[in-house]
Simulated scan of single mutants.
Amino acid sequence: MAKVLVLYYSAFGHIETLANAVAEGARGAGAEVDVKRVPEPPRPAHHAQAGQSAPVAEIGDLASYDAIIVGTGTRFGRMSGPMASFLDQGGGLWAKGALNGKVGAAFTSTGTQHGGQETTLFSIITNLLHFGMVIVGLDYGFQGQMTTSEIVGGAPYGATTIAGGDGSRQPSAIELDGARYQGRRVAEVAQKLHG
Rank of each mutant, 00 (worst) to 15 (best):
A48R: 10
A48E: 11
A48K: 07
Q49L: 15
Q49M: 15
A50M: 13
Q52D: 05
A54W: 04
P55R: 05
P55E: 09
D61K: 06
L62I: 11
A63F: 05
S64P: 00
S64D: 12
S64F: 09
Y65W: 09
Y65P: 03
I68P: 02
T74F: 02
R75H: 12
R75I: 03
G77P: 06
G81T: 15
P82M: 10
P82T: 13
M83C: 05
M83N: 03
F86T: 04
G90F: 07
G91M: 11
G92Y: 09
L93F: 09
L93N: 08
W94C: 08
K96I: 13
K96V: 14
K96W: 10
A98Q: 07
N100Q: 13
G101Q: 12
K102M: 14
V103R: 02
V103K: 02
A106K: 00
A106I: 04
S109G: 01
S109F: 00
Q113R: 12
Q117K: 06
E118V: 06
T119Y: 04
T120Q: 01
L121G: 00
I125T: 05
N127F: 14
N127C: 15
L129D: 09
H130N: 15
H130R: 14
M133W: 05
M133T: 07
I135M: 14
V136G: 00
G137Y: 06
L138D: 00
L138K: 00
L138A: 04
D139H: 11
D139Q: 06
D139P: 04
Y140F: 15
G141T: 09
F142P: 00
G144V: 05
M146G: 01
T147C: 01
T147G: 01
T147H: 03
